[in-house]
Design a protein around this nucleic acid. Structure first.
Length: 894
RNA sequence: AGGAUGUUAGCUCAGUUGGUUUAGAGCGCCGCCUUGACAGGGCGGAGGUCAUGGGUUCGAGUCCCCUACGUCCUACCA
């Protein structure tokens, strides 16, 4: 006895183990077959599955399963990312709970804890992916911190350094004065804060050339003019004026043209700084004059570099003023701010203070206000490396789906800055740079090699390993994940191995648009740089999963359902289809559990169709029922038509559309129409030929649906298949498009319309579906309807069918230009009939008019393509025939 | 602020080189239908001047421009 509803739970576990046991997901290079490769975007090793992963991995699985069924050597490589910042933060928090400070540990000790943590929580997410049905080759699971991949990072660092792409330089970073470390841009939370905008007056120095010793100038007072010759700037950080290197105004600003080339004195400390001009300045903000403080502001830093200004850092690493500030030395930056305002007020340099709303960066971890700070970091020179990455996306060697992202991608690359790859963390690949006691840098794979280099290249034979210190920083996580498509096949360790030669370049990459820049672009760069070839041919960009209100799903909002709960509730197939129903590439998915419900209902629908067919008793008659024969021909055509459509949609990466087309094929065409057409009477057997054709349809439908719903399709497929033919739907053949009879499909459409009209008539006249009705067809083309008679009787519950070219009794409806009469018992509601016909007439007349307007337009007839004009003529003829029929009917009623 | 992108039924979206009827689907809604595969179901129905205003064209949901609103990315401005 088959259950009335589909029960996913045991079926899913059963088949997943079966697939794994039989190693259907494992792949080896096979020269006989075309490879199809996907590398998973490695999730954070300590992460748990969220809705974004579900969507992303469902899409990958659909693509991989289809390729596998198409006979390709499908290989989906899973793995995880060490996620240095996120993981280190979690480990540090865990240590804190144990009462251990990171600073109390050696690097080695810290690693022990980190690995312990990774082993404990790592890979949970990969277990969860199995529940979803992901057909990964689990034997190939990789981790970005495992030795081989660690080495790949070190080797590529050295290679790029030797090629001159990596350099060490002073750059502005986000400094957390409380944690005394730099933090990445992603860890900076900008918050809106109310601050004071101070307007400060700087005195202009008139004499030229200016004496270097500014004290002298202020002492004798000669060079300082009265208030008319001064410039007022606005700032929210008055405590940094001692670090000013210039005042900047817009070159076209008439107010300040007379000051170009002059110098001003910084209030309180009276150091002279130049007035420079740059179009960066917004004339109508503040006073249109800007103090330039290169050491304490990113934009000012850029200006400083451009105008070669002095860089004066007046802050200590914990955010206090240092000796270079000259005044308020030792005060905290915020205390200093208050105090200096007072000093400025006393000295008469403070013009006014306004309340001002500004966005200030805060550290995610300590909530301290981030201090832009210049420090020594490692960088990758990007401009040249980017060239192939830009070109090969623009010329579609690598295709983005949807293509609209090409634009964004181009703009990003064109504005790229050098990539800061050093991070002041421990969990990650330590930079292979060694410092000699005098500060000389040697980049080498090991300390021993660095020493050898120092001895041989620098002739420093007296050095020992103890004299060398390795750079404590690690590289940015993306510096390991950009190698992923190559490193998972050991393309660095062994650049000519069988795997990399066979699987690389990979085919499709599925990821979120948010990391197009961080990750996708960098993988493309790495692909061309390290293998001289693209890393993948297609990039499928998913949307972001949001809730029904359009908010991003997040832990803090608590609006993200647990994917495993969903799978438990709706089944993996239900959740998979639920997510894909409404998520075309590049579109955000507004997730609603209703979608999963729809997915589950779809499973149930398929399940019950299967139950119905399974329950039939089969017999072998002399000849097959005619209506069933016709139905089989029709569904075969429909199936071929839809298969072609599905294949076309797949080729365009329109997976949502492909799923919807399949959904309708199964629900509407197969269940609602086909099964109803061939269904034998209650407790009647079905003829063998029809039964077998139906089983054949099931076979193809399950194959077509398998990439989307692997579990239920496998269950049914296994049940209907003769044993021993092929062992799993996973590796069965994906349906191919075959020719189909388009005329047959068109005639069936007319037939369905007739059926719908009869049902509609019953509905409006309140006649039970069980009451048989006689039907008279008024047509010039009797031959069109004759083949459908038996089906019409069955589906519309007609007692008998007759034809006429004249008139008939009863109420009627129109399909095309033919009229269908149903003689109902009782009175005919003439008024209602007339009203309906009148409405239809009006519509058709309006339609005819619009077609006529087109056709009577000479320019249309001249300019439009011949087939378009012909179609319009046909439309007109159809409309005219229909109008004639309606008018006859109206005459008859009056 | 700059850039990208979007605005089609109550909601979520299709509508692929401009011409297959006067625009489609799913969900929701309304009406009718429960012994017979499935109420997680069946049958039927209502619902849109394609954001606004211009333009190009014989013809515009589709191409161009303006405006409004939304989303995203980058930069956040002293």
């Amino acid at each position: 006895m088959i259950s009335k509803t589909y029960n996913p739970r045991e079926i899913e576990d059963k088949w997943y183990s079966y697939w794994i046991e039989n190693r259907y997901f494992n792949s080896k290079p096979n020269p006989e077959k075309e490879p199809y490769t996907v590398v998973i975007p490695p999730p954070n090793v300590t992460g748990v599955l969220h809705m974004g992963h579900m969507l992303n991995n469902t899409i990958q699985d659909v693509l991989v399963r289809k390729a596998r069924m198409e006979g390709k050597e499908a290989c989906w490589v899973p793995g995880t990312d060490h996620a240095s910042i996120a993981t280190e933060a979690k480990v540090v928090a865990m240590l804190k709970e144990k009462g251990i400070q990171k600073s109390d540990l050696t690097r080695e000790e810290f690693y022990e804890y980190a690995w312990e943590w990774t082993d404990k929580y790592g890979g949970i997410i990969l277990q969860q992916l199995r529940k979803l049905g992901a057909s990964c080759d689990w034997d190939r699971t990789r981790f970005t911190m495992e030795p081989a991949l660690y080495d790949a990072v070190i080797d590529t660092f050295i290679e790029l350094y030797n090629k001159g792409y990596i350099y060490r330089g002073h750059r502005m970073v986000n400094w957390d004065p409380q944690a005394k470390t730099t933090v990445s841009d992603e860890e900076v939370i900008t918050k809106e804060v109310m601050t004071k905008l101070c307007y400060l007056r700087y005195q202009v120095v008139n004499s030229y050339p200016l004496t270097v010793n500014s004290d002298e100038v202020s002492d004798n007072g000669q060079h300082i003019t009265d208030n008319d010759d001064s410039i007022i700037i606005a700032t929210v950080r008055p405590e940094t004026i001692m670090a000013d290197s210039a005042i900047c105004v817009h070159p076209d600003d008439e107010r300040y043209k007379h000051l170009h080339g002059k110098k001003v004195l910084i209030p309180l400390i009276n150091r002279a700084i130049p007035i420079i001009t740059d179009e960066y300045v917004t004339m109508d903000f503040g006073t249109g004059a800007l103090k330039v403080t290169p050491a304490h502001d990113q934009n000012d830093y850029d200006l400083g570099v451009k105008h070669q200004l002095e860089l004066i850092d007046i802050l200590t690493e914990d955010g206090k003023l240092n000796e270079k500030a000259q005044i308020l030395v030792g005060e905290d930056r915020f205390v200093a701010r208050k105090k200096i305002i007072k000093l400025l007020e006393e000295s008469g340099n403070l013009e006014k203070i306004e309340d001002y709303k500004s966005n200030v960066g805060h550290s995610e971890r300590t909530n301290a206000v981030i201090e832009p700070r210049v420090s020594l970091q490692w960088f990758v020179r990007m401009k040249e490396l980017c060239e192939p990455a830009l070109q090969n996306v623009m010329n579609d060697n690598i295709q983005l789906h949807p293509a609209k992202f090409k634009n964004t991608y181009r703009i990003w690359i064109e504005n790229i800055r050098d990539w800061n790859i050093s991070r002041q963390l421990w969990w990650g690949q330590q930079i292979p740079a060694y410092y000699l006691p005098d500060g000389t840098v040697i980049v080498a794979k090991t300390k021993r090699e660095a020493l050898r280099k120092a001895q041989h290249e620098l002739l420093l034979f007296a050095l020992t390993e103890a004299d060398l210190t390795q750079d404590p920083d690690v590289v940015d996580t993306w510096f390991s994940s950009w190698l992923w498509p190559i490193s998972v096949f050991d393309g660095f360790k062994d650049p000519n191995n069988e795997d990399i030669n066979y699987y690389y370049p990979t085919n499709d990459l599925v990821t979120a648009p948010e990391i197009l820049f961080f990750w996708v672009m960098r993988m493309i760069i790495a692909g061309y740089e390290f293998r001289g070839e693209l890393p993948f041919r297609n990039v499928y960009l998913t949307g972001i999963v949001r809730d029904t209100k359009g908010r991003k799903m997040s832990k803090s909002l608590g609006n993200s359902p647990d994917p495993l709960d969903l799978i438990d509730k709706y089944g993996a197939d239900g959740v998979r289809t639920g997510m894909l129903f409404s998520s075309p590439a590049g579109n955000d998915l507004l997730f609603d559990e209703k979608l999963c419900e729809q997915g589950r209902n779809f499973c149930n629908k398929i399940w019950n169709a299967f139950r119905l067919v399974k329950g039939w008793e089969v017999y072998s008659p002399q000849s097959t029922v005619h209506s069933s024969q016709l139905s089989v021909l029709w569904f075969d055509a429909k199936l071929n038509q839809t298969t072609a459509e599905v294949l076309d949609l797949f080729s365009k990466y329109r997976l949502s559309d492909a799923l919807n087309v399949i959904y309708k094929l199964i629900w509407d065409d197969f269940c609602s129409q086909y099964l109803e057409m061939i269904k034998p009477g209650f407790e009647q057997p079905i003829d063998k030929a029809t039964f077998e054709a139906t089983i054949g349809f099931f076979d193809k439908l399950m194959a077509l649906t398998h990439p989307f719903m692997p579990f239920i399709t496998e269950e049914i497929w296994q049940d209907i298949r003769p044993r021993g033919e092929k062992e799993s739907l996973c590796v069965a053949e994906f349906p191919k498009a075959a020719p189909f009879d388009a005329t047959l499909l068109a005639n069936f459409e007319i037939f369905f319309e007739v059926v719908t009209n009869v049902r509609n008539l019953r509905s409006t006249k309140n006649i039970s579906p069980k009451t048989e009705l006689p039907l008279t067809i008024k047509t010039e083309n009797q031959a069109l309807y004759q083949p459908f008679e038996s089906l019409l009787i069955k589906l519309a519950n007609i007692s008998d069918i007759s034809y006429t070219t004249g008139k008939a009794d009863g109420t009627s409806f129109l399909v095309k230009a033919d009229e269908f009469f149903v003689n109902l018992e009782g009175e005919l509601d003439v008024e209602a009939e007339r009203e309906n016909l009148q409405k239809e007439l009006e519509y058709t007349l309006g339609f005819k008019k619009s077609v006529e307007a087109k056709l009577s337009n000479e320019r249309f007839v001249q300019n439009a393509k011949a087939d378009i004009v012909e179609k319009e003529r046909q439309k007109l003829a159809d409309a005219e025939a229909k109008i004639a029929t309606i008018q006859e009917a109206l005459v008859r009623l009056s």
